[in-house]
């Protein structure tokens, strides 16, 4: 039982970071209709910027805040300079541009910080907390709690504030939003800023768990099964789906993989199934698209990736 609880806590911690990143993708899609494949690059760059700010001697909180602000600026820049001129371009062309941004940002980080993984500065205290026999490191605990708080805070902001209402109006019907005096283009810029900022914080939290490397950008690919599962346009769905996927990966790694390996060892010469948990998100993606294309929380008629 303790082992199961251990898997649950680890799954929720990682899943909450997935959710944070996926919420950013959904936000951009709702407000600007763009499927942003560069979100993984924003995640990675946020972590590198926190790293750089820490190297300058800033305390962790300031380093993360500075990275968040810089990432928000990069988000606005990406929207204004790259995406806005492509407003009337075909969807596929816009998707290709976001892929291009992913490659460019990754190449820039490679040029500045090199290809090797870097030791990420310690942001959270060492050690672990024991709760009902379950050990959870402060890293996992803080990353999980912070991600969930940020996600809930963001959902609350979107649901209950005037700016959130303007964002929802611009996403629902830009023509009507204009007519009631909402600067729709500013709302789109704000969505990109918030999305990139969230991704930057998510990247920092992931780096505290898994270390800092260019591979952090791959998280963007895991976020896509999350948003398909949650429904492409549902922010709450992205949160729940992120947590579900984290749990699923944790249980696959801790329970399913060893069971399958035992079975294979008994009957075949295969001894390992490798990182099966890496495959799970995409298997889930295919299953969801086949069985419930609108995702768990999406409505029929929502566009699919």
């Amino acid at each position: 039982m303790t082992y199961i609880l251990q898997l649950v806590t680890a799954g929720l911690a990682v899943g909450s970071v997935y959710a944070l990143i996926a919420i950013g993708i959904v936000l951009i899609y709702k407000c600007s209709g763009v499927v942003n494949f560069a979100q993984g690059a924003f995640v990675m760059m946020g972590a590198y910027l926190t790293f750089a700010a820490s190297r300058l001697g800033l305390p962790p909180v300031l380093a993360v805040t500075l990275a968040l602000v810089l990432m928000a600026g990069i988000g606005v820049l990406a929207e204004r300079v790259v995406l806005r001129p492509m407003l009337k371009a075909p969807v596929v062309a816009v998707m290709m541009v976001t892929l291009g941004m992913l490659i460019m940002i990754r190449a820039s980080c490679l040029a500045v910080w090199g290809p090797d993984p870097l030791a990420f500065p310690r942001i959270f205290p060492d050690g672990a907390l024991e709760l009902f026999g379950v050990f959870i490191t402060y890293n996992y605990l803080t990353a999980g709690v912070l991600s969930i708080l940020l996600s809930l805070g963001f959902l609350g902001f979107y649901r209950f504030t005037a700016v959130g209402l303007m964002q929802r109006c611009a996403a629902d019907n830009p023509r009507a939003a204009l007519a009631i005096g909402i600067h729709t283009s500013n709302q789109v810029s704000l969505a990109w800023a918030m999305s990139a900022g969230l991704a930057g914080v998510g990247g920092t939290l992931l780096a505290t768990l898994n270390g800092l490397s260019l591979g952090l950008a791959d998280i963007g690919l895991i976020a896509f099964p999350v948003i398909v599962l949650g429904g492409l346009t549902s922010l709450g769905g992205a949160l729940v789906a992120g947590l579900l996927l984290g749990l699923l990966q944790s249980f696959t790694d801790g329970l399913l993989s060893p069971m399958i390996e035992d079975l294979l060892r008994a009957h075949t010469r295969i001894y390992s199934v490798g990182a099966l948990q890496q495959v799970v998100p995409y298997a889930l993606l295919v299953a969801v698209l086949l069985l419930r294309p609108q995702g768990i929380f999406g409505r029929k008629g929502s566009e699919r990736l």
Partner: peptide, 19 residues
């Protein structure tokens, strides 16, 4: 009849008052 069909009626009215 341009309005925000996914938002509630109260939210539609509130949004229009933001200006």
């Amino acid at each position: 009849r341009q309005c925000f069909r996914e938002l509630s009626i109260a939210e539609n009215l509130r949004a229009a008052s933001l200006v």
